[in-house]
């Protein structure tokens, strides 16, 4: 019945456990643990359409989910060897700190505070986003600047809560935040009419609008983008080897798109390509996996299981999904976006 107190208790227990365990260095241990355990513990959201959402059979899908599957394919040879752990905005950081999850792939913004003080490291940016506002069409709003004295629903534990205050302070506009601990309560209150606007990352707004609104067409996203929300996976600090694996699997998916490799054509390209860069990526040239502590097919399996970055995007949040988000900044650097992976060499 008392969820907040239960969570506090959980945190206390985690602290107690960390208090009892004598300090230990644990570099390089995550991969061994994962191999022994036989699956990856992947921290995701409790249900944001497009990013991580379980269906009625409990099968997860989404952009963040696919990243974890790609890593599992790379490391364990099977994209299904992932255990998804739903975490709300508040729980996510304790979960990665305490070792409950090996990776946090949960529409999480990379910020200095989080990077430098929470005992975790962001491995890179997989989705360039920004914060916006969702409003009912019937209010006939065209700009966030018209939200003077409005009540705005927001979930706590997010960057969004602080950006909200920052933005309206800089605009000298007073607003009233209504702050919810849970995701569901936050959007339910908004859709019941309690708030005149709902705020979070624009990708999240698109998910909420399409999945949770009775009639998505009754709601619009205002044009203002009030923050930078670089979303990316994070791992526990102190294990550089595991950090490198997560980072390079994400890069491999981007490299694959740049090289025109898709889930469909990967086998024929693998068999035929004479391009040394592609041969290195797919394991037919120099062994790039050895340096990561993996085998030479590490990237091949990742791409084969979920497709390249563009395919992952299109399937989950792009044209082939209900969200229909534009590629925008998330296009390749040579196609008008800022997605740029260092060479796999």
């Amino acid at each position: 019945m008392t969820r907040p107190r239960l969570r506090t208790l959980g945190l206390l227990c985690a602290l107690a456990v960390s208090a009892l365990s004598t300090p230990l260095a644990h570099a390089g241990k995550t991969l061994d643990t994962i191999k022994q355990r036989g699956n990856i513990q992947c921290g995701v959201s409790s249900g944001v359409a497009g990013f991580s959402l379980p269906d009625s059979q409990g099968r997860w899908s989404g952009f963040d989910v696919d990243l974890c599957r790609a890593i599992a394919a790379s490391v364990l040879g099977d994209p299904n060897k992932v255990n998804f752990v739903p975490l709300n905005s508040q729980q996510r950081f304790s979960a990665i700190q305490s070792g409950e999850v090996d990776i946090l792939a949960r529409n999480t913004t990379w910020t200095l505070t989080r990077d430098a003080s929470l005992g975790l490291s962001f491995t890179g940016i997989t989705y360039f986003d920004g914060q916006g506002f969702l409003v009912p069409k019937k209010l006939k709003l065209t700009s966030a600047k018209q939200l003077k004295n409005a009540e705005i629903c927001v979930q706590s534990g997010t960057t969004n809560e602080k950006n909200l205050a920052d933005y309206f302070r800089s605009q000298n506009i007073k607003i009233k935040p209504v702050v919810f601990e849970g995701f569901e309560a936050s959007f339910k209150a908004f859709f019941s009419g309690r708030c005149q606007a709902y705020t979070t990352d624009i990708s999240g707004l698109a998910g909420v609008r399409n999945k949770e609104a009775k009639n998505p067409d009754d709601y619009v996203i205002l044009p203002e983008v009030i923050s930078k929300e670089p979303l990316g996976p994070a791992v526990r600090r102190g294990d550089d080897d595991w950090f490198a694996i997560v980072r390079w699997v994400a890069f491999a998916l981007i490299e694959a798109e740049e090289g025109g490799i898709t889930q469909a054509n990967i086998d024929s390209i693998k068999a035929d390509s004479k391009d040394p860069a592609i041969q290195r990526l797919l394991g037919t040239g120099e062994d790039s996996g050895k340096l990561l502590g993996l085998d030479r097919d590490w990237a091949y399996r990742a791409i084969k299981s979920v497709g390249n970055y563009g395919e992952v995007f299109a399937r989950n949040v792009g044209p082939n999904s209900v969200l229909k988000l534009p590629r925008g900044l998330n296009n390749l650097w040579n196609k008008g976006g800022i997605l740029y992976a260092p060479p796999i060499r």
Partner: peptide
């Protein structure tokens, strides 16, 4: 103590404020 359950419905009592502070500052 039960009033702390109010975080669930967006009433800014102590636990709700502490949650926000905790997440902004990282000082769990």
């Amino acid at each position: 103590k039960n009033s702390s359950l109010a975080v669930a419905i967006g009433y800014p009592e102590l636990v709700s404020v502490a949650n926000t502070a905790l997440n902004q500052s990282g000082r769990a």
